[in-house]
Design a protein around this nucleic acid. Structure first.
Lengths: 248, 248
DNA sequence: AACCAGTAGTGTATAGTTTACACTAATTCC
DNA sequence: GGAATTAGTGTAAACTATACACTACTGGTT
């Protein structure tokens, strides 16, 4: 393969958009860069893919080093390879996103992890490299995903209330949902276990606690089920005549 | 960046799943390999990405060299980077798919194009490298895409009948659709122009010809519309109680 | 000219889904 | 005991999806 040697001069990396949900808000874990290029800027965690390492394994390694978490939701989203995206050479990066429970996250000892901090996704700007674009692509993928699969529980603690779940959906979809319709839809999926427990120590009527039903969720995935969630139309442009929403 | 030189030893390529529709069947354009590795096997068209070339540009180049076509539907799908996917070294490939009108395709003079041939997607097997997996990923993406966006016209000649359109959908979705419901849904989208012409030289009642309305399609894309198509349930498992198809 | 073969084209009733919307219930705090 | 705060609940109307079968038009055959 000597004739092709000139093509073996590029590097590839993975960048990981690690998402969590906290304080009613979607958060992304960013690293403050300690070196050039973009020294001092915030960036997505990522690293070179080792020569004998699969792509997915590299993404898991980056996640593990930073958060200590394994077996979390991780999905490849898109590859970014503009010629000049890295000032030091041709570097192609494969973007992944992962969903973690912030309650499980504990800051790691590694020097890189010391520089990590959660940022509200909505307020992130001016990241290093083309990382704004990567973050957008991953967050949009999550928006699509949450409408078709119940991935919400990846982001919530084991026990949660329906209101918390709804707030999560609203944060991801950046919209408001109707409480009654949301509950009807969620409960009709039969993917929640009613724990027959309630919140404690809140200064109002305590909410029931639920748990995701992992077995039923496996069935759901196996059968290729999907669902749709639509936003509440309260206070929308009035009388927008919905053109028939389907085509071939 | 000398410390990172060891990472600049891999190559990356693009592979392009070029899809067309002919004789009621989805087709993919494959190349018979003339060299090792996998000499004599069929493979997806692809090539190294040049050092100063963007990924999308590389995919367009591969497509152009093979078909002479530009400005066709082209979309990045997924990146494949298993360590040993290429026997000669670490090669990561970014998979793209494109949709072309086979009627526009004319075999090109280049030596590579001489080795190209259309194959029925359903009957493809035993491709070189991991190309079966890549083809599957791209075809599945198309299946998803066709349910949510009217990309069908990318695959049909400028004038077509509703039955041709329906057959295209059935070929992609690998299912049967109800004629009346299909037509209702399609026409309700208002994306077709009735040309007030009919087929000629057919030994049966001639069908009306339609054209896609590109302007309305642009609006459709801009407004983020989507649609769903469901398969006919004729002859399905009887009385399958549709568990509520939605969740958060 | 009559008929046959073959595909095009059309409507309706039913079931299911989505939407909009407002009040009562349970708890803490004062 | 009352105020504050969030939890929890049902229904009617509009819309969408589905199942289903016959007539219309053309070319070819006799």
């Amino acid at each position: 393969m000597n004739e092709f040697n000139e093509y073996f001069k590029s590097a590839f990396t993975v960048d990981n958009v690690i998402l969590g949900f906290d304080e009613g808000d979607m958060k992304v874990l960013l690293i403050k860069r300690g070196e050039e290029p973009y020294k001092g800027k915030w960036a997505l965690p990522g690293y070179f893919v080792y020569p004998n390492e699969d792509l997915d394994a590299a993404a898991k390694r980056v996640l593990d080093e930073l958060t200590g978490l394994r077996n979390v939701y991780l999905e490849q989203v898109k590859t970014f390879g503009t010629v000049n995206r890295h000032p030091f050479g041709r570097v192609i990066t494969v973007a992944y996103f992962s969903l973690i429970k912030i309650s499980d996250y504990a800051i790691q000892a590694s020097s890189i992890a010391q520089k990590a901090k959660w940022h509200s996704v909505a307020r992130v700007k001016d990241l290093a490299f083309d990382h704004n674009e990567i973050l957008d692509a991953c967050f949009n993928r999550l928006k699509w995903l949450i409408r078709s699969r119940p991935v919400g529980f990846e982001l919530l603690p084991p026990k949660f209330t329906l209101t918390e779940l709804q707030h999560l959906y609203e944060a991801i979809l950046e919209t408001e949902l109707d409480k009654r319709n949301f509950r009807k839809k969620i409960l009709s999926m039969n993917l929640l276990i009613d724990l027959d427990e309630t919140q404690e120590g809140v200064a109002h009527r305590p909410a029931r606690l639920y748990q995701f039903d992992k077995e039923k969720y496996e069935e759901f995935l196996a059968e290729g089920f999907s669902f749709e969630l639509k936003e509440s139309k309260k206070k929308e442009k009035p009388s927008f005549k919905k053109a028939s929403p389907s085509f071939p």
